[in-house]
Structures are given as C-alpha cells and as structure tokens.
Simulated scan of single mutants.
Amino acid sequence: MPENILIEKDGTVEIITINRPDKLNALNKQTIQEIGDAIREADASQEVTAIIITGSGTKAFVAGADISEFANFNSKEAFALSQQGQHSMFDVVENCGKPVIAAVNGFALGGGLELAMSCHIRLASDNAKMGLPEVTLGVIPGYGGTQRLAQLAGKGKAMELITTAEMIDANEAHRIGLVNHVTTQNELLDRAKKIAHKISRNSSVAISKAIKAINDGYKDGVNGFESEMNEFGACFETADFKEGTTAFLEKRKPNFPGK
C-alpha cells in the first residue's frame, strides 16, 4: 500500500491525491515512485479511462522537491536522481495512454510544477501560485522543467520565468498557456472530473493514439506527422473504429469496447 498518496475512483476516473500535508506535499523519492507506479497500474487497467492528480489540503498541489534528500549530493548522484525521477514518474505521466489531468490547488513550485507540466491537461484554482525557483538554490530544474515549460509557454517566457525564479498566479498561467482552465478552489476537482468524464465517453483506443501522436511531435528525431499517419491508420483495425463509424451511420451514440 502506498504511504504518500491516496487513490480513489469516481466511476472510470481515478483520482490520485498526493498526501504529505505536513510537507506541503513535497516530492521525495518514495512519493515519486508511488505516483509512477499508480499511473502505470491505471494505464494498464481496463476500468480506468482518465486520471486526475491533485494535492491534499488547501495550501499546495506540490510545493517542490524534498531538498533534504539531495542537499549533499555530488554531480553523479544528482544526475542519477534526475534520471531516475524522469524515468520513474515524469515520463510515465507524460506518456500514459490515459489522459492525465493536473488539478493544481495552491502552490505548484519546482518539482510540483514539473509534475503538472508532465500531465496532459492542467486546471488551476484561483489561489494557485506556480514557478520554478531552482536558480535561487544554485541549481536548475531537473525534472523536465527547462523543456516542458518552453514547449507550453514558449522559449522566451520559459527563459524569463526560470532565470528570474518568478512565481506567477493562476490567471497569468492561463494567459501564457500553462494551464487550460482557472476555477475557484471549491470547483477545482469537480471541473477536473467533468472534463475527465467527458473524455471517458470517447474511444479510449483513439485517445491513446492521439496522445502518442501529439507527444511524438515534441520528440527529437521523431516526425510527428509520420506518427500521426501511422496512428491514424492503426485506428482502422480497431473495434472502436468499427463501433464509432457504425454508430454514426446508424445515428446513435457509440458504445466503445475499448479495443
């Protein structure tokens, strides 16, 4: 049983809550591993169609990484920490075949913002504060922050936010494309669930292929258009495609088998 996260279901939507309120839900190695394991299990489950990640309490989504774990590391140990974190959680979230929605409540700093950015869709409560303050500690973001922030907000904005260590509010995050929606804190989880359930009505097979094609467009050495063509063609061999097109022609709602 995981110690630092809570897992619950809302129909076919799985909700993962990071539960270290005394540490403002800071990411330590154990929490990173637990989240990664939970995402892998949800991705493999036939019963889960979408995933929401949020933080417990009202103060923080994730206030950052647990600095006490690596304050005395050397360069080799730090490289290994970054590599292991990427492989065990951040890349797992980004490449999950089920849509992963970040419901950002309160602070999302450092590794917390990096986790949110690895998700496919981001919602923020109107009290959210986001930033990558690593340069104030003499280090840079090590869990994908330099790459994903530039992809989402553009190179110039990423340069500014990372080098100034500026913290921005939810409205500014929405303006620069860092989050999809801003809600009140009371509405945050319900809005995330509403989006997740809307996703769940569509073909899970097609959604998984769409996620892969979109992600491939941001990978070095991968032609996103080629990936789209391959995934598009593969859809035609699926039971979901047969059901979707048949339902359309018969003027009824599809009942996708997820195969």
Results as ranks from 00 to 15, higher is better:
residue 168 I to C: 03
residue 165 A to R: 05
residue 161 L to V: 04
residue 155 K to A: 09
residue 161 L to H: 09
residue 158 A to E: 12
residue 168 I to W: 04
residue 157 K to W: 01
residue 152 L to Q: 04
residue 175 R to H: 14
residue 150 A to T: 02
residue 170 A to E: 00
residue 176 I to L: 06
residue 161 L to W: 05
residue 178 L to R: 12
residue 164 T to L: 00
residue 147 Q to E: 13
residue 159 M to D: 11
residue 148 R to M: 13
residue 153 A to N: 04
residue 176 I to V: 14
residue 153 A to D: 09
residue 151 Q to I: 15
residue 154 G to D: 03
residue 179 V to G: 04
residue 148 R to T: 13
residue 152 L to Y: 11
residue 175 R to A: 14
residue 160 E to T: 07
residue 156 G to C: 01
residue 177 G to W: 08
residue 148 R to L: 10
residue 167 M to H: 11
residue 169 D to G: 12
residue 168 I to S: 07
residue 169 D to N: 15
residue 154 G to A: 02
residue 172 E to V: 11
residue 160 E to Q: 04
residue 156 G to I: 05
residue 147 Q to H: 14
residue 177 G to L: 05
residue 167 M to C: 09
residue 174 H to W: 06
residue 173 A to V: 06
residue 146 T to L: 13
residue 161 L to D: 08
residue 173 A to Q: 01
residue 164 T to W: 02
residue 146 T to K: 09
residue 150 A to W: 10
residue 170 A to Y: 07
residue 176 I to A: 06
residue 148 R to P: 07
residue 152 L to D: 00
residue 145 G to N: 05
residue 178 L to P: 07
residue 152 L to V: 12
residue 164 T to H: 00
residue 144 G to V: 10
residue 165 A to F: 08
residue 161 L to T: 07
residue 169 D to E: 03
residue 159 M to Q: 13
residue 161 L to M: 15
residue 173 A to D: 03
residue 153 A to R: 10
residue 158 A to T: 10
residue 151 Q to R: 15
residue 174 H to R: 08
residue 153 A to V: 15
residue 155 K to E: 11
residue 160 E to M: 03
residue 178 L to E: 06
residue 150 A to C: 08
residue 156 G to R: 01
